[in-house]
Every structure is written in C-alpha cells, then in structure tokens.
C-alpha cells in the first residue's frame, strides 16, 4: 500500500504547507502537551493527548473583532489560515458540534466560518484510550472521524502513518507534495454513529432533570474555577469587551464560562444561577440536553479532559450515569 508514509516524509509535507499556512500541532513543554504554532519537527505525534483541546485555532481565547479609530470602524484582517495537525477523533467530532453551534443557527459566525473554511485539519487516530477517555461510551470511534481533511493512523512500530484524505481540500494539499501525492481517500465508512447520551432519555423536560439527582451533592466539591470550560473541545461561550488604548478602541471576543458566578449576573444584582450546584448543573445539561435540543449533537465527545484535569475529581461521565440511573 502506498498510503503508509514515513513520519519524516509527513513532517516534510507539513513544512511544504508553509508559508501559505501557519502550522499548529501538539508540543511538549515540561509536564504538559498543548497545541501551539510551531515547526513540524516539534509536534508530538505519539499517543499522548493534549491537556486542552485545539479549539483555540477556530475560536481563540481572545480575538479582536473590530477596531475603532477616528470615527472609523474596521474589522480585523484575517491572519494566514492554519493547518492543525494531531487533533484526536474526539476533537474532530467536537469541531462538528462547534460548527453546528456557530453556523447552523439564525446567525452565522463569520470569524469561525472563515477559519474553518480556509484551514486544514489533520486528524490523528488514537492507539489506545487514555485514563478518563470515554469517547467509546458516546458512540465515537477513537480511530476515525470524517470531520477532517486528512487522517493519520500510526502504523504499528514503524515510525510511519497510514494516511488517508477525507475532503477535496485534503486531497489537493497532499497531491501537491511529491511524497504524499499517492495518498488515497479514506474507504467509505458508515459515519460516526452517536448513540443516546450514555443512555440518557433526552425527551425528558429540563425541569425533570433538575430533580433527578441531588445537584448540591453532585457538585459539593466544585471550586467554581473555569478549568473544565477552557480545556473542553466543545465549550463555546464568550463575552465582548471593549478596550481603549492610546485612542484606539478594540472590541474583543473572549472566552467565558458558565462556572463563573458573573456569567449570568444581571445588572439588577439578581443571579438566576446563584449557586455552584446550579452552575454545574448548567454545564452538564447544556452539554447533554440543551445543545442536543438545539443542534442535534450532544456537546460532549468524551475526550476526558475535564475528568483528567478537574482539580477536585468531578467526573461528568459518572454524573450523567447517575442521571441515567435515577431515570430508571
């Protein structure tokens, strides 16, 4: 088969995408692995998983949308498109959810759309589940997602990848580089089947979920940090901030989190989600119920990041399972 490509050659292919594209991939820095812009030789393409998702390349933590100066308003020029290498199937499925949220509703988000339309997504199949991963329980395939342009699977013990393409853009990019010109499309495959959300009956009304379990108890240890939001591949909440410096005003879009008390604080001082338990309940139900109602996608892909990183060991999977259990 010609579709097994040496790692070295594949990294050369990545380098050939420059300078038209910026390159991003998982980089190791001390204890952590995170997606950063960098050189292909720095990307860690083994089976270690980044502590936070690569969503920031489509939905940055801080982005300037508009600049106001001397009575004129200008939108920001788009930087060069980015090729993200090493996104896991759970990250890819999360991008599908993000896309539904940002583009399928009444208002389309042009910033997100542009980045997705012009960039290249190169997925990396997992060799094994990592502690905390539960993609399988949600019906994902840890070795496959079609929501990418090119998919890599590590060929066993060879320092090589099995490479396939899943989009015209992927095929075109590979064809331009001699070493990857023969790569074939991924074999036709039943798309990812997402089953019921860990057995949860989504037909149930919101208020019923409120009473199913003792949320105070479930979230008793929660410290209300925003870690789980910031590292999650599907969390997509933001707020706007205007900053004026030296007579120039920028309107920024910044990540926000429903775990922060200010998230729903009204100007009157009233807060409809005044307790941590109410906020944690929002996190779970937004992922498993509300986004599913609005877009048809469950907004958790079982990537396990919040399970691994929550400083007090709160486990969304066990909490959803306790809901399912309580439904019986």
């Amino acid at each position: 088969m010609t579709d097994v490509i040496g790692e070295h050659v594949f990294r050369q292919f990545l380098a050939s995408l420059e300078p038209a594209m910026r390159l991003a991939g998982p980089v190791r820095d001390g204890k952590i692995v995170e997606f950063r812009e960098g050189a292909p030789e720095d990307f860690v393409l083994d089976d270690s998983v980044s502590y936070k998702a690569p969503k920031e390349f489509y939905f940055p933590q801080v982005e300037r949308l508009i600049t106001f100066q001397d009575g004129e308003a200008e939108s920001e020029p788009e930087p060069r498109p980015v090729a993200v290498t090493g996104a896991r199937p759970c990250d890819l499925e999360a991008l599908r959810v993000m896309r539904a949220v940002f583009l399928n509703g009444r208002y389309k988000d042009p910033f997100f759309e542009q980045r997705q339309a012009r960039g290249l997504v190169i997925g990396l199949a997992c060799d094994a589940r990592k502690p905390g991963c539960f993609c399988d329980a949600l019906g994902l395939d840890m070795k496959f997602s079609d929501f990418c342009d090119i998919l890599l699977e590590r060929a066993r013990g060879e320092g090589a990848f099995k490479v396939t393409h899943l989009s015209g853009r992927g095929a075109e990019a590979l064809a331009k580089f001699p070493g990857t010109a023969d790569v074939k499309p991924a074999p036709a495959r039943v798309g990812v089947t997402r089953g019921r959300a860990l057995g949860l009956d989504l037909g149930r009304g919101e208020k019923e979920f409120f009473g199913l379990i003792d949320w105070e108890d479930a979230a008793a240890a929660c410290q209300g940090c925003g870690m789980c939001t910031y590292i999650c591949p599907t969390c997509h909440c933001f707020e706007f901030r205007d900053v004026t410096e030296n007579g120039v005003t920028g309107r920024y879009r910044c990540w926000d989190s429903c775990m922060f008390p200010r998230f729903t604080l009204h100007a009157s001082g009233h807060n409809p989600r005044a307790s941590r338990a109410a906020r944690y309940r929002q996190r779970v139900l937004h992922k498993y119920l509300y986004v599913a109602q609005n877009t048809g996608h469950i907004a958790c892909t079982g990537c396990g990041r919040c399970v691994r990183s929550c400083p007090v060991g709160i486990n969304i999977k066990s909490i959803v399972e306790s809901l399912t259990e309580a439904e019986k």
């Binding site: 905390g132 008793a220 399970v307 691994r308 060991g313 486990n315």
Partner: peptide, 15 residues
C-alpha cells in the same frame, strides 16, 4: 477525602 477515582487516582474532597 473520598475514594480514589479509577481514572486519575485522585481522592476527591468529600463532605
């Protein structure tokens, strides 16, 4: 502290 998590080994706070 509660029983250790099978995923991370962490003993989460328990009240």
């Amino acid at each position: 502290f509660g029983p250790q998590s099978p995923d991370t080994g962490l003993s989460p706070p328990l009240i």
